[in-house]
């Protein structure tokens, strides 16, 4: 396009517009400025990686810490120099698992209902309400988990069995937070299935339910998988719900035997997740020179790698889906 602008010259007869403002230098500068705006996003990623890796490197360089202990230890207690990440990972697994148990069946059912059964009118009412659910700040969910879900669980299962802070309550509420995302992505996948497939199923005498579950859902399975993985990634990275409701302090184990006993997978016990630990330690005036400071970056690096892998898997699934139907 730039050739066109160069061919134009200011007219002598006064009929052509004055083109003196059309400096090609100006055009080029604008282009470069816009490119720089785009490059900032790359710089952001690079900075995140550099910051996490550098501080994690300092952390593993400290005499108290070994990489082996970090991955195989079952106690996270910076005060006595024990840095085994398992208790934090274990708590993250518990809350994420509880969240997915709630979000997956409800989210997919809601998606099937909205895509296959609901009238346009119903859908136009329900979808915005689900979007409201997605727009509620996570700290509000944390408040809800602590003041409603935990008392509810304690009433059902007995006060002696359920701690005031517990991973189950945080996980359940987190499930409802993720639900709109799962149902929305799954619904998109279901609606992307061509109608010819449905007509073919009806033609063979299938009922509406059989068509939905045996034809449409399998055809949209990759999209639903992507929704599941993206939801899981959200659950792993979610901070405020667990910071408020799951507990403040890692649920340490004496041995791997204990970690994999029923005690290690108790949803009613308080436990601190990776994100919860980062949030608690970084509150207040943390000293930049302390091991506490660099330790949270090692957890952050782990979190980054996990969520990045989940996101890449999910997007490659979505991309394959797109190639299938477009």
């Amino acid at each position: 396009m730039s050739q066109i602008s160069q061919k134009n010259t200011p007219g002598q007869d006064g009929l052509l517009p004055d083109l003196s403002g059309r400096s090609s230098v100006f055009e080029r500068v604008i282009g470069i400025v816009l490119l720089l705006c785009g490059v900032i996003s790359i710089l952001t990623t690079i900075s995140i990686v550099v910051v996490l890796v550098r501080e994690a490197y300092l952390f593993f360089g400290a005499p108290e810490v070994t990489v082996r202990e970090f991955f195989t230890g079952t106690t996270w207690q910076p005060a006595i120099g024990k840095f085994g990440i398992w208790p934090l990972v274990n708590a993250t697994l518990l809350t994420s698992f509880a969240a997915m148990v709630v979000a997956l069946p409800l989210g997919i059912s809601a998606a099937i209902y909205l895509s296959e059964y609901a009238s346009d009118r119903t859908r136009s009412i329900i979808k915005p309400i689900l979007e409201v659910l997605a727009g509620v700040p996570t700290v509000v969910y944390g408040y809800f988990a602590l003041t409603f879900m935990t008392p509810l669980l304690r009433t059902i299962f007995g006060k002696g069995n359920v701690d005031i802070f517990n991973t189950g309550s945080a996980g359940i509420v987190m499930g409802f937070m993720i639900l709109p995302m799962i149902s929305s992505i799954s619904e998109d996948a279901l609606r992307a299935v061509p109608d010819s497939l449905r007509s073919a199923a009806y033609g063979l005498g299938a009922t509406k339910f059989e068509t939905a579950v045996r034809v449409v859902v399998p055809a949209a399975l990759s999209g639903i998988m992507a929704a599941f993985i993206l939801g899981l990634s959200r659950a792993v990275g979610e901070t405020m719900i667990v910071a408020v409701a799951a507990g403040a302090g890692p649920n340490n184990f004496d041995s791997w035997g204990e970690a994999f006993s029923a005690e290690g997978f108790n949803f009613f016990k308080a436990a601190e997740t990776m994100t919860g630990h980062i949030a608690r330690i970084s509150q207040g005036d943390i000293s930049y020179a302390s091991l506490d400071y660099s330790s949270i970056f090692s957890i952050g690096l782990m979190l980054f790698v996990i969520t990045l892998i989940l996101n890449i898997i999910s997007r490659s699934i979505v991309n394959r889906l797109r190639e299938q139907y477009e």
């Binding site: 952001t44 995140i48 990634s233 990275g237 994100t275 980062i278 970084s282 979190l303 980054f304 989940l310």
Partner: peptide, 13 residues
Amino acid sequence: NLAGVPSILYGML
């Protein structure tokens, strides 16, 4: 990819 990075990591940055 950035849109999927947990928000707490932006805080660490």
